[in-house]
Every structure is written in structure tokens, then in C-alpha cells.
Amino acid sequence: MNFSVLQFPASNCDQDAVHAVRLLGHSAKLVWHKDASLGETDCVIVPGGFSYGDYLRCGAIARFSPVMRAVKQFADNGGLVLGVCNGFQVLTEAGLLPGALIRNRDLQFHCENIFLKTATNDSPFTSRIPAGKILRVPIAHGEGCYFADEETLARLKANNQILWQYCDATGNLTDTANPNGALLNIAGICNEKRNVAGLMPHPERACEPLLGSDDGKWIFESIFAALKNKTVAAEA
């Protein structure tokens, strides 16, 4: 499978994403933000970082990069898009995902390992995560507090669009386990069509035991499986 990892000025998790995909046995290439096309691509990763210095709002400028038009078209055609951290912020600013990410409630930048509960296996990003498995992955953000109005939250719940929630080590969705004040402990969501997802934690930084956890690989394995099913379906 071919992954395209976007590269904006001040992206800083782009190489980590490329490394994780290659480590797990697939191809990944970087796509510069000024490129108008993605090239041969099965999945797009919008990586973490501080695109355009987080000026104005996180992700506000990046969404107007030429490459984002190609990403929108790719997503509209059903392509899989995963936004991590700043990439999640870019996708909400671009209107590809609902809601917004605002300043952490304690105004602190949080750089730590957290626990994630997978709210549903019904998505290309979560299907292979073992039932009941609590993922231990790092976060590193100052603006990760998920916000959406009540109507949007109700829609997210009704459509099963909440994919990951912050929890404690045993899977309880407590307020103390919530590092940033996100509504409903939301760490990641997907769109209604379920082909675009974003999350604040960094699965690409947790794909090998050397890094302290390889739980992040389950998210990538889910994407690989979804892409494989798609190929089989297309060939059939």
C-alpha cells in the first residue's frame, strides 16, 4: 500500500509517520504542501507539528495549501485520510471533520503517555484493534481540547463517529484521565462517511516496543486491512 504523508512548513511528525508505515511493511512518501497532486496514493496522513507556526489558529493556514485541494478531492472520492495531532486540527479547519480543537483547559502543553479506549471497531481506522484493548500512546499538544456544539455532538454519537476516548488504565472514561478537557473525553473522531479520521494522540510514535509501546500499530493495521479489502473488492 502507498501512503502519502503531507509536509507543511513546521510539520514535525512527518518523518515519524513515514517511518511507522515503512516499519509495518508498506510504502510511504512525503508530499510537499505546494504540490497540487498526491500521486499514487492509497491513504493520506496529515501529520503532527505546528504547520505555519500555528499562526492565527492551529491548522488555519495549512488548510489553504494547494495540496489540501487534492486531499479534499481524494476524501470526496472515498480515499482514507488520517490526521494526527496538528493534522486533526488541519482536517477540522478544512471542514473535512466536524468540531474544533481549542486550548487545553489547563493552558499547559501536555507531553505524556495516555490511555485510549476505542469506542467502535466499525471504521477503517479501528477495525483491527483487539476488543477491549486499551491503547497506550503519547500525546504532545497545547490545543487538543475537542469542542463541538451540542447538535454536532449528538450527531457524532448517533452516527458512531467517536472513535477514541481518553480513559484510565482500565478503560474508565474519567475526568482525571482527560488531559485537555475534550468534550466526552474525545480523542479522535471520523466523518459521517467514515473514510476521514483525526486524533490528537500519536499512534505513529508508538509502533515499536523500543519506543515504550507498540499499541499505535493497531490503528495502522486497521488501515492496511481496510485498504486490502478495498483492493480485493475492486478486483472481484
Binding site: 486550548r103 487545553n104 483547559r105 489547563d106 493552558l107 478537557g181
Partner: peptide, 14 residues
């Protein structure tokens, strides 16, 4: 300005 329903931790701190 932040919408009224949105948490404004900076405003609260000040």
C-alpha cells in the same frame, strides 16, 4: 472573540 459556549481558560485565568 470566543463563542459563549466555548471554554475560555485564558479568560478564566485572567
Amino acid at each position: 472573540t470566543p463563542k459563549k459556549a466555548v471554554l475560555d481558560p485564558q479568560g478564566k485565568t485572567v
